[in-house]
Design a binder for these strands. Structure first.
Lengths: 330, 330
DNA sequence: CTGAAAGCGCTAACAA
DNA sequence: TTGTTAGCGCTTTCAG
């Protein structure tokens, strides 16, 4: 049980007041060079670091940033978390990763906690949340970054620019003379519908094809749902010859089922995922996917948060370019 | 910017003092039923939650629990993190996941921060840390749980019981008449050596075989290192016919290389991993592995931490049973 | 350019 | 069974 070094100790050692130590740390008012040097020497000498609890109590703001995601076991979010944390560490901010399991009640509970505890920031990929659920953060003045496919009220946004990549995917698929295009999309009640489906639909038209209603099935963003969705598609009167998936977890589930049913991938059916989760290149056949770079998303979110913390008040959108990765499954 | 509800507000509403409110919350001294009811009513009425910063400042203990792991992108640790967080949430504790990238300096920096900020607890899978590095936590009185294959000083430990599972793996491999057993182990300078290698060596003797020095190669716990290690093994004068891997990331790397070299798995070489990371059943051939259940580990760590927080002072060890999963690669 | 001091919201010792 | 109150370590206003 060793004693903690407080600012008072530093002040005494440097022969100044605690106010001066505080200002050396924050730079919020000028300090004479000599004083500053003395204080800095005392700080390193004693190994002082600020007590964040005291600071938080005084400033009314914690050092916690919540990263709220539907599924931390999805490597995409794990990587996003790692990048975010890495970027924010230098600012003395701590990232807590909160798993909602795609449950709206969890999502809302987490937001409430962020408000109550005056979190320094929130980065969230909403899954079943409504835009008005998010508003509480704005009212509480908590810097918020949404990572989602569609805008979500007047807050900072990191969003994919997937148009080109999706077009390339469609090119590849249609060049192989595939016309019956299907999608295993997210659940109907997900936040913002399924923008990946919308984009695909729009672009499909340009390729002279479409996604008929019976070739769009829906389910959670899980491997199981992917398997189930694929099975349903295979039971259609006219089977699809190309299946796009909401994300790579879903695509892998589809692959499981294809194996089980003896459906050849890509022979009979081309399979395209989204995200390029780390396992996408690991399955056989390797997953063709529309890569959305998790690290870049994490870094972009960190940057937006920093800017907010530095006082920016207008909201910004960062578009992160998705990339088409033609591997073996399509 | 809405106002925060403080304990004073609650006290006023309930017609008691803040002390009573505090005691209702903590249960640290008896409160008359009627009073308790009134206070609880006021709390829900006003939507009060304690200000953790104030509490931390007062008690000298934060609500933060650090989970320090070598690689958060490894799904094993991601799942561990999710389970730990889930268990601890109810206690009002926040888990921050800290990635060390297997770097000792990072590991030490994180421990130092935990001490400085008086974290409520630390759960760590040390990778290059020495036992004496950990001691700072004990001296600072911070509840600590080690998740590792070997004991690590007098602290709480969650550790695998892999003897039976490893024996089963060896049985399967030797039953297939494989005698040249190899391992792609962890780096030589890793904390505690490589206990998985030691265990395998010990048991191999019982099966009338052994792991000769030139059939043990070493590297980081990464996919790349796995590929490289496998390549080295394949360049041996007498190639192994069975390869155990430090974990599943490594095993997948080995699989990559086997594909590249045209080495048949399991035809020419049997491959056995460790952990059963989520992707183990995803690769082709599916990975035979010695499963170490991440969720159980996370829950066990949470339980040990809770017990410490409740005052237990002797250290305990929880053994979590590993399980042999015979899939396709061996 | 620097210091004194109030006070953030809570806990726990002490008093009743 | 309950209340009063000091004080945790910091930031920031006000005064010098």
């Amino acid at each position: 049980m060793q004693e903690r070094v407080t600012m008072t100790d530093v002040a005494r050692a440097a022969g100044v007041s605690t106010a001066t130590v505080s200002y050396v740390l924050s730079g919020k008012r000028p300090v004479a060079p000599a004083t500053r040097t003395a204080v800095e020497a005392a700080i390193t000498e004693l190994g002082f670091t600020v007590n964040t609890a005291a600071r938080s109590l005084r400033t009314g703001q914690s050092t916690l940033v919540a990263l709220i995601v539907p599924d931390i076991a999805n490597p995409f979010f794990a990587q996003l978390a790692a990048a975010l944390q890495e970027e924010l560490r230098g600012l003395g901010l701590h990232v807590i990763v909160c798993n909602t399991r795609a449950d709206r009640r969890e999502e809302r509970a987490l937001l409430a906690e962020a408000v109550q505890q005056r979190f320094a920031g929130v980065v969230i990929t909403p899954f079943r949340l409504l835009p008005r659920d998010i508003e509480v953060l704005g009212r509480a003045g908590i810097p918020t970054v949404i990572s989602a496919d569609v805008p979500f009220g007047p807050v900072d946004l990191v969003t994919p620019d997937a148009r080109t990549a999706t077009r390339q995917a469609l090119e590849r698929v249609t060049a192989a003379k595939r016309r019956r295009i299907a999608m295993i999309a997210g659940p109907r009640d997900a936040t913002g519908g399924d923008p990946r489906l919308e984009l695909l639909r729009n672009l499909a038209r340009q390729f002279g094809t479409s996604l008929p209603g019976d070739l769009v099935v829906r389910g959670e963003h899980t491997r199981e749902a992917g398997a189930e969705g694929f099975a349903r598609l295979m039971s259609r009167r006219y089977r699809p010859d190309a299946v796009f998936c909401a994300n790579d977890m879903v695509a892998v589930g589809a692959l499981d089922k294809a194996n089980e049913l003896g459906v050849g991938i890509p022979g009979e059916v081309a399979l395209v995922g989204h995200d390029d989760a780390s396992f996408a290149s690991l399955v056989r056949p390797q997953l063709t996917t529309i890569r959305y770079p998790a690290e870049d998303v994490g870094r972009a979110a960190a940057r937006l948060l920093k800017e907010r913390l530095d006082g920016r008040s207008v909201h910004r959108t960062v578009r992160v370019k998705a990339e088409f990765l033609a591997r073996d499954s399509a």
